[in-house]
Design a protein around this nucleic acid. Structure first.
Length: 492
RNA sequence: GGCCCGUUCGUCUAGUGGUUAGGACAUCAGGUUUUCAUCCUGAAAGCAGGGGUUCGAUUCCCCUACGGGCUACCA
């Protein structure tokens, strides 16, 4: 058995945002590495220059950091927000490895495992059209596969535009051994002679990723299911060089509600959007980790550390999972209630910025809504009435059920006195107030409903709200009485 | 079209030949409560279909259906 150090990587293209499915891929790669006390690296796959997005790498690193998915090798964002690379298997930005890839391609050609191809885009188009017309499988027709070497040299020297293609076997089959799916067999004759070096000299994914995975000593290639069908080409490259194959794991896709691959068109796919909306990294990690895998039958809440310890790649589901926000919402509420108070304030208080009241008041409001919210931003609307100077009672009934106005007034007048009498500021918390007011109600021989409903409504002007005790505690004595007076005034 | 992968409650899943098919979210109904939220209790809800193999199939095999991925000088 080999003693190889476990090394996994997350290798995104810098296209502007991190797809939520890729977060899960990165998460699983991180689990595998950390569990084995190995390395988790970040490599940037920017061989497609036309898709390059300015600043994408920086934001990618930032998001990864927020999600607690920082690699311990590879591309990194230093404290000044500058991109750096760490580790002795670099460079970790693929475009900087262009010449390394070209060397590999050259070796492949020398071994007769690849060849130069001079076919123009136009010819390729025609070939395809013809194939479609005659209802034959589309693909490269091997036109340059067996070109005379001296002709090749001549055309190369003449500076003719060219690519390099893999010279794949025309018969027999390959079997991919995938940890999640088992053995999957493909016939060689159905697989195209893939371009590995483009006419701009840059490698395509197939060569670049495999060469880099080997050079970086990646032991587990963990990626989306969309790569399963091209794995034969990747195995071909590994075998041509005589390299040891890595472990392959093709993860099921994350899907839209209609079961298609999760896409921008049908909702938010960017991890950044969820973070911006106030979904907590802990909730997202917990949620995403359990989308496609589950360690036990009867638990839903896991810390990152627990997930690392429990993870088992071979137990990952084969079927795609639909991304449903409901459970994430539930988890987010759970974690919102679990984090320490200061972190909670940091998250929620900014949403109360529009109001001029002092911070202590805002903090009390924030606590009041802690177990009532899914997302921090919700508090702005939810707590609006608490910051409104003059409440409008016209939309809501102040009296309890079919009880009289007179009765409600009587209770409110009494409540004012009770509140006034709460003297010690130490007593000014909702549980004390509840105890006290309930005892006063009893003393008067009144009912909870006919007293507390008018009280609560006069404090909130809302059909639904936190209890009057909580509201009084938040408002303080003066404001509470002021509100009751307002309500009384409108009951004339 | 071709190749490949997949299919357990609405959703995420547990389950690897014998289970009342378990849990969670969502839903609904009760309870606690002045209302809301929380919390507690409960309910409804699933092995895609058809053939085998077997004493016995959710579990193994085959077929069908349905879904998905790939089929680029994108990753």
């Amino acid at each position: 058995m080999s003693q190889k150090r476990i090394r996994t990587r997350y290798a995104p293209s810098p296209t502007g945002y991190i797809h939520i499915g890729n977060v899960r891929t990165a998460l699983y790669a991180d689990f595998v590495a950390k569990q084995a006390k190995g390395d988790f690296l970040l490599r940037i796959e920017d061989t497609d220059q036309s898709r390059y997005v300015e600043g994408a790498t920086e934001s990618l690193c930032k998001t990864l950091k927020l999600l607690d998915l920082e690699p311990n090798e590879g591309v990194w964002l230093d404290d000044d927000g500058k991109i750096i690379q760490r580790g002795d298997h670099g460079p970790y930005i693929q475009s900087e490895r262009k010449h390394i890839h070209q060397e590999y391609a050259k070796k492949l050609i020398e071994m007769d495992k690849a060849y130069y191809c001079f076919c123009t885009a136009e010819r390729l188009d025609e070939v395809r059209k013809m194939q479609e017309l005659t209802k034959r499988p589309t693909g490269y027709d091997g036109h340059c596969r067996d070109l005379d070497p001296t002709e090749v040299t001549k055309r190369l020297e003449a500076g003719e535009s060219h690519v390099v293609r893999l010279k794949l076997p025309k018969e027999g089959s390959v079997t991919v051994n995938d940890v999640i799916r088992g053995e999957v067999t493909f016939d060689w004759n159905l697989i195209d002679d893939q371009v590995i070096i483009k006419s701009d000299g840059m490698a395509t994914y197939h060569l670049a990723a495999m060469a880099d995975d080997h050079d970086m000593e990646i032991t587990h290639v963990i990626r989306g299911e969309e790569w399963l069908s091209s794995t034969p080409k990747h195995i071909f490259i590994y075998q041509a060089f005589g390299w040891d194959l890595p472990v392959f794991a093709h993860l099921p896709l994350i899907l839209n509600h209609d079961k298609s691959k999760l896409s921008k068109r049908q909702g938010d796919v960017a991890a950044e959007i969820y973070l911006d909306k106030g979904y907590l990294p802990k909730a997202m990690i917990n949620f995403l980790a359990l989308l496609g895998w589950n360690p036990t039958a009867d638990r839903e809440i896991f810390t990152h550390k627990e997930l690392i310890d429990l993870f088992n790649l071979s137990k990952v589901n084969k079927a795609g999972a639909i991304f449903q926000i409901d459970k994430l919402n539930w988890l987010n509420n759970h974690y919102l209630r679990e984090i320490d108070e200061q972190s909670y304030f940091d998250l929620v208080l900014p949403h109360l910025n529009a109001y001029k009241e002092d911070d202590n008041f805002k903090k009390r409001v924030a606590i009041l809504y802690r177990e009532r919210m899914t997302l921090p931003a919700e508090i702005t609307e939810q707590s609006k009435y608490l910051f409104t100077e003059k409440l409008n009672y016209s939309e809501v009934q102040i009296t309890w059920k079919d009880h009289s106005k007179l009765e409600a007034k009587e209770r409110l007048e009494a409540a004012k006195i009770w509140i006034e009498q709460i003297n010690d500021s130490k007593e000014f918390n909702s549980s004390f107030i509840e105890e006290y007011i309930k005892s006063m109600i009893q003393e008067n021989g009144w009912g909870n409903g006919d007293t507390l409903w008018p009280l609560r409504v006069s404090l909130s002007a809302q059909e639904k709200s936190p209890s009057p005790f909580e509201l009084i505690a938040v408002y303080g004595k003066k404001m509470s009485i002021q509100r009751i007076d307002q309500a009384l005034a409108q009951m004339l």
